[in-house]
Amino acid sequence: MGSGSPQGQARVAPRCVGRSIAATMLSMITVESLTKTYGRGMTAVDDVSFTAATGRVTGFLGPNGAGKSTTMRIMVGLTPATSGTATVDGRRFTDLPNPGRDVGVLLDASAQHAGRTGREILTLAQRTMGLPRTRVQEMLDLVSLTEDEADRRVRNYSLGMRQRLGIGAALLGDPHVLILDEPANGLDPAGIRWMRDLLRGYADRGGTVLLSSHLLHEIEVIADDLVVIGKGRIVARGTKADLLAAAGTVVRARDSVALAAAMEGAGLKITAHADGSVHTDASSDRVGEIALARGLVLTELRAADGAGLEEMFLELTADTQREGVAA
C-alpha cells in the first residue's frame, strides 16, 4: 500500500504535467533552522530543520514537551519564530491567500467554543473559506458524525468526537497538505484504524501529511518518514525503514545471562531487558555467530521492529526524558 500504488501514481501524475521540476519539488512542507526561545533562556525549539514530502506521511515524534506542538504552531503562524522559516510549497503559511484551501490544520481538537454545535463549527470554517454549503454535510459524513451528534454542542462531545470534528474541519477546504497534532488522541481502536486508513489513502493519492504523536506504535504503523525530536532538537530523521534498520537486533536465549555476557565479551553494546530479551546495534548475523560459538540456545533472534522504534525513541531521547534513562 505504498505511495507507488497504481492509483496513487495515476492521481499524482497530473501534478508534474506543465509544472517545472522545481515547482513539483516544492510541493511539500519545508522547515529550516526553526528556533523559538522564550525569556529566561528557555529554548523550546532549537534549530529544527526537516521536510515532509508529497505523497508521504511524515511522523513527528517526541516525548511530551519536546517542542512538537510549538513547531507546528510556528508553521501555521500562531507562534512567531525567533528565527528560521517554515514554508508550504515554498510559501510561508501567512502568505497563503486562503490557507484552509491549501493546508488542513488540527492542532487541538478541544480548542473550540464549547457552546457551538459541531455543524456550526464546520459552517463557520466553510464560510470563511468560501466553500459551497454542501461541503459541511460531506465532511460530517466522512468523519461519521451523525445528524444528532452534529447538532449537539461541542461541550457534550467526547474527545474522540472532537478529534473527528477536527479532522473534518481540517479536510473541509480540500487541502493538499495536512498538519495534525496528536490526531489519534482520544480515538478508540476502531477510530484509530479509521484515521490511519484515511491518512494512508490521502497520502497515496498525492497528499502531504505531517502528524505528531507520542504514541510510538501509531506512528510506526502509519508513517513513511520520521522526524524524532527531543528537548527542542531533532535527534533523528529519515525514512522509517532506514531508521528501523539502524535500530538493531533483538535476541533471546534460554540462558539470558550467559548470552548477555557472551555478547559483551564479543565487544557488542547491549541493553538487557527484564523480560530476558537483549537488544544490540549489531546485526542478527553477528549475534547468531556469537551464540553458535558459545553453544547458546536462542529462542528468538530478529531485527528490532515492533519494539524497535520504541527502543530508538527512548534511546535517542534518553537524556531529554523527564523520567531519565528509561531503557
Binding site: 492521481r11 499524482v12 497530473p14 501534478r15 504535467v17 509544472r19 513539483t24 510541493s27 484551501r101 491549501d102 460531506e138 459524513d141 466522512l142 461519521s144 451523525t146 451528534e149 467526547s158 474522540g160 468526537m161 479536510l171 480540500d174 487541502p175 493538499h176 497538505v177 478508540d188 476502531a190 477510530g191 484504524r193 479509521w194 484515511l198 489513502g201 490521502y202 493519492r205 498525492g206 497528499g207 502531504t208
Partner: peptide
C-alpha cells in the same frame, strides 16, 4: 459512535491541476 466507524468515503487531496 464507538464502533460503527468504517466509512467508504475518502478525502481527496487537491491535485496541483485542481488547485491552479
Amino acid at each position: 459512535m464507538s464502533t460503527t466507524v468504517l466509512t467508504t468515503a475518502r478525502p481527496e487531496p487537491a491535485t496541483s491541476e485542481e488547485r491552479s
